[in-house]
Write a protein that binds this DNA or RNA. Structure first.
Ligand code: NAD
Ligand code: NAD
Lengths: 213, 213
DNA sequence: TAAGGATTGTGAAATAAAGAACAAATGAAT
DNA sequence: ATTCATTTGTTCTTTATTTCACAATCCTTA
């Protein structure tokens, strides 16, 4: 069905649309046009209409989109109408920050367990989440876990991912600055602040050049 | 010059290339072919050769690329041969994690100052970086600062960005889940873990459907 | 209920990016 | 020196994404 025709670029914009609609609904806005919505998310209105059109006719001509309806639709489409359980590997600086973040509030996501190798951390609890030893990764049943968040040092990311994969986890959100080599049935998204910072600096310098010529 | 012809997609891959070359050089590899390199970064070798070709002939036919030379070239291209000074706004869970991260080690980047509104945080030092009050943002001279890292609550991100912009900062790395509305001469990159997590879950579910049909 | 204004949904065109294929050049081996 | 294997740089093709343009349709208001 839809999955075969929805372009990747469209799918990657859906979470942004969803979040923006949550805010609109929270603010009591009941309807919005593609052009107003486009201003909010800083995306061309045509792109927005095209994106929505892959899922059928979600709007009404001459009226726009019903925010509540659209939000509910995206909620289902993004599987946000069910709880998404994830685990976290690597309870260091970044891992602790993530554990302290309440993903349940606006996202239906919960970090249900954390794992680490440090004996000082194993057995403790961070913001209500228990920290287990890596050995227990294999022992624990992970069929109900959607994804693993990797916040280990780069040198150990591959190894950690493989252990998670072996325990039945196929989705990874990798914060380590390293490329993971995993089988095809795994899916990785990479959040790399270093790359973002360097790209930012590159574009800053080059937008100057462009403007000066 | 180059800036006018280098595609955006290419520019965004350069940091990944640079980091991978750093590792190769560190491991004593003196040469590499585009296909071997492509395996490492999981990008088609043609794309890699094309990417490099925008900067001229960086390799040698029948030989490949000299890792040291290529690394040095990218170092300059990405402005990593000079220190990049940034500030951080919002010393909370995530901000503290970032302050504890040594960006100087592999990236020539330093968080020189931090800002917050919390009186309990102002005046303290986190991992060697002093925390200032927001009022001082305007007072401080920021002409040598390349970018601001935003780790404030979403509701305050716009306001914080505007203050930084007023003090002369044009680059932003925004970790808050909100779209910033800034003038054209500003450049924003958005790191949104919520979006990444939802996209991950979407693609996981849909790759399943595809495989089953 | 009719008219006018607003706004969608979508083909067609334009742009951007990725991938295939290969001649040209180099390195390596004998 | 000569041959052969390697690998780049690049042209051409294909695929993906964005943008344009507008008929079709629905809302609104008088
Ligand atoms: N801290 C940041 O702000 C930041 C910024 C950019 C990137 N990163 C990346 O995120 C990752 C984590 O960064 P951090 O600052 O939290 O590091 P950290 O050193 O504070 O934490 C790493 C944690 O992983 C654990 N660990 C080490 N090896 C492990 C293994 N094999 N299996 C399981 N756990 C293991 C350690 O015990 C530690 O608790 C690193 O790859 C880092 O490069 C962090
Ligand atoms: N913690 C995470 O792992 C995580 C994950 C995803 C997204 N985020 C986003 O990152 C941002 C920060 O998250 P956090 O967990 O560190 O939050 P936090 O509440 O721990 O920290 C926010 C900090 O910003 C300061 N602050 C508030 N208003 C300010 C203002 N107007 N000017 C300057 N400083 C101000 C607060 O005093 C506090 O120190 C949020 O937008 C959050 O949604 C965080």
């Amino acid at each position: 069905m839809a999955s075969q025709t929805v372009p990747q670029a469209t799918a990657e914009r859906l979470p942004l649309y969803y979040r923006t609609l949550q805010q609109l609904v929270a603010n009591g806005k009941t309807r919005i046009s593609s052009s107003k919505f486009g201003e909010l998310v800083q995306i061309d209105s045509t792109t927005i209409r095209k994106d929505f059109s892959y899922f059928g006719a979600l709007g009404r001509k001459g009226y726009g989109y019903d925010t509540q309806y659209l939000m509910d639709f995206l909620k289902k489409t993004l599987y946000q109408d069910e709880l998404n359980r994830v685990i976290l590997i690597g309870v260091g600086h970044l891992g602790t920050a993530l554990l302290n973040h309440n993903f349940l509030k606006n996202n239906n996501t919960q970090i249900v367990r954390a794992y680490d190798v440090d004996p000082k951390k194993i057995g403790t609890e961070v913001s209500g989440t228990k920290v287990f030893a890596m050995d227990e990764l294999a022992a624990n049943d992970h069929h109900e876990i959607v994804a693993a968040i990797l916040t280990v040092p780069a040198a150990h990311a591959q190894e950690a991912a493989e252990k998670a994969l072996a325990s039945g986890i196929r989705g990874f959100l990798n914060f380590s600055p390293t490329t993971l080599n995993l089988p095809e049935n795994a899916y990785v998204r990479h959040v790399d602040m270093t790359v973002e910072l360097q790209a930012l600096i590159y574009f800053l310098n080059h937008s100057m050049e462009t403007k000066n010529s």
